[in-house]
Design a protein around this nucleic acid. Structure first.
Length: 305
DNA sequence: CCTTGTGTTCTCCG
DNA sequence: CCGGAGAACACAAG
């Protein structure tokens, strides 16, 4: 489940590989994964350079060089490729020298990559392949097909970002006062609020649970009922957990791998997520898992009140 | 049946 | 009856 730290890890690694590179080929293996459609994506990606790679919450934004197609819409030309990995998406970059196709004489890097993706690429979950010069390829794999590639113009991108994404942890926009005012008057459970991308962009189920454990707050508490002290603890916990998780290149719980096919290193730092029935590292009480706002929620019933 | 991120739809309340 | 908040549902597929 790629959340902010995992998507940021992919963004950083991938930026070094693809920014400045020209797109030489586009293969859409699963039309359902491409918006508005596979034909439009192919037509508008071919021959263009990736000039920046950005991220907003869990959304990757590939900024493209201006289109040479003078017949294209001038009002809002499709200059941004959005990629969302949702639950099971992977973006894996492979240089020609690391090609998995041969099977013989693989480099050590290629071997670990092959292990991570369960064999060769493309595999049966590959939904799209973007080819660059010198045989380099970017594979979009997505077992459950919830993720997508979507090509949009600047105006549509601005609308998407404005309508769906609140401030990012670890940025000036995510100030303590901004967080406090997002809590005031809210009757929703704090767990639901943490998952709401319009309030904080980038937290998913793993980091929401970890954050609440660190702040010692019960997931069913009403957001607006948190004291000023609790709000500050939670705000600090969000920044701490997200910062640490980025440092450790994210969490591999199920099938997350980075752009090089490597696992994240934050798994061992998880205190509650996926640890139901085990003991709380702080007090030794058995960690509970329950369903809160429709999501599996892990917490310590003793520490978190 | 379970899993999750997000968009959509439903329901409630003032 | 309107608007907004929050909850519930829909989606995919193993």
């Amino acid at each position: 489940m790629p959340e902010l730290p995992e998507v940021e890890t992919i963004r950083r690694d991938l930026a070094a590989k693809v920014v400045g590179r020209k797109i030489m080929s586009v293969h859409i293996l699963s039309p359902k994964s491409a918006a508005p459609n596979a034909v439009f994506l192919k037509k508008n990606l071919l021959g263009r350079k990736i000039i920046r790679l950005e991220r907003r919450g869990k959304l990757l934004i590939f900024a493209l060089s201006p289109s040479t197609d003078l017949l294209g819409s001038k009002s809002d030309s499709a200059d941004y490729l959005l990629i969302h990995l949702k639950m099971t998406g992977q973006l894996i970059y492979v240089d020609k020298k690391d090609s998995l196709a041969g099977g013989h004489s693989l480099s050590a890097q290629a071997k670990s990559l092959a292990e991570a993706v369960g064999g060769t690429l493309p595999n049966r979950h590959t939904r799209a392949i973007i080819g660059f010069s010198q045989g380099a390829r970017l594979f979009f794999n997505d077992l459950r097909r919830f993720g997508y590639l979507k090509l949009v113009g600047a105006a549509e991108l601005a609308k998407i970002l404005q309508n769906n994404y609140g401030p990012e942890p670890l940025t000036a926009a995510f100030s303590l006062t901004a967080f406090q005012s997002a809590l005031t008057g809210r009757k929703t459970k704090i767990k639901a609020l943490l998952l709401n991308q319009k309030i904080i962009a980038g937290l998913g189920n793993i980091y929401a649970d970890e954050t609440l454990w660190l702040a010692r707050i019960h997931p069913e508490r009403r957001a607006g009922a948190l004291s000023a002290v609790e709000a500050k603890k939670l705000w600090r916990a969000i920044n701490r957990i997200i910062g640490r998780a980025i440092e450790y290149r994210g969490t591999t719980f199920n099938n997350y791998v980075d752009a090089g096919g490597r696992q994240g290193n934050f798994f061992g730092f998880l205190k509650v997520y996926g640890r139901a029935g085990k003991r709380c590292p702080a007090c030794r009480t058995t960690i509970v898992k329950s369903k809160i706002v429709g999501r599996g929620t892990h917490y310590c019933p003793h520490c978190q009140i």
